[in-house]
Design a protein around this nucleic acid. Sequence first.
DNA 1: TCTGGGGTCCTGCTACGA
DNA 2: TCTGTCGTAGCAGGACCC
Length: 431
Amino acid sequence: VDEPGILHVDMDAFFVSVELLDQPELRGRPVIVGGAGDRGVVAAASYEARSFGVFSAMPSVRARRLCPHAVFLQGRHHRYAEVSGRVMGIFRSFTPLVEPISLDEAFLDVRGARRLHGPAPTIAAHIRQRVLEEEGLTCSVGVAPSKFVAKLASEAAKPRISVDGPLPGIGVKVIQPDEVLGFLHPLPVQALWGVGPATLQRLERLGIVTVGDLAVMSPAILTSALGAASGAHLYALANGIDDRSVEPDRRVKSIGHEETFAQDHHRRDTLERELVRLADSVGARLRAAGVAGRTITLKVRFHDFRTITRSTTIGGATDSAQTIVHEAKRLLAEVEPSPGVRLIGVSVSGLVEGGNRQLSLDDLDAGSWDDANQAVDAIRARFGSSAIGPAALADPDGIRVRTEGEQQWGPGVGGPGPAPADPDPGRNSGD
DNA sequence: TCTGGGGTCCTGCTACGA
DNA sequence: TCTGTCGTAGCAGGACCC
């Protein structure tokens, strides 16, 4: 790889910027998108909010303390997905080799687009211009010979915060092949993709502070400290070696849904009802994606944040909520909920394309559900996700069904919490 | 300070069949 | 028949990313 042909495009404060498009009167104010409840977190913060020390993944309680006058918004995932789809469309008008990483960032391989659109830095500038003109949004672009250097470069191109407020970034940062090591080595080691708090601690024990320190370390010492895969991977990155290609059609490997409760739950029957709702959502998403899976995993997080997973692998792949619920309940039966459960989740992995799906005995048992599931999917497509759902989830008046998507970044203020009618005698925790 | 929800990947352990 | 080895699958947990 000898020319900077990989782009990393990162939208600036994406969720917040989309909200500002729809509510321009909020421009210039500190705006935070995320869960507003006691157990929520910040999903995105405007640069005004960031200058108060607010960052994504920060507990909302703390964000509110740091910036009490900030405007808190719940977030609208569907709206962000819609805008993201159009932005990715702009990227694809330059190259088919687009690998979306999330709603707001993607890698592009533009080495084959030179003739049509010019060299990579020119393409980067054109992309920024078109995203601004067509969507009213700004983005930062890193241009480099490899994915991870492009990612770090886009970070260097981003707007900055200062005591006087936000400062615009340079927008495009280009790293030529002979500049890679000079760019990388002064960076703190946690700038590397794959170095989080735990790995950072281990590296610091070896006296490694910068990427340059890591680059001159013995690979044998690194692998013994970090394991074979991570050690070799980080050593390669620190020396500027990253031959991962841009993969335009990565297949999803698992689909899951989990929720934190506004208050801890202590009763198995309450948790089972939540499982029905989560599995209903996971089944619908599996069918929408045209996949089915063999491994069902239950996740439980207790009041003290201890988290366990229990999984089981069934004979044939399923996309049926009924089968998922059945297996998840069996797994839950081995868990003691009385200390208090703050989160429960269900996921399905070992995915195969729906067309290759094999029927298991469980599926045969639930086979009659297939038609019902298809009918439910059709009704939801036409009337919305809350139009129909499992009877176990209906409100006492039988009118409305709680479904997925009502909490994105933690439980809202005062809810949704448990399904209704959940007396928890002997407890005063507010289940 | 008190920690969401969507994921991926890696490691270590155990069971099991060849 | 018993024992050891090896590869693989399944499972649980941890770390990390956005």
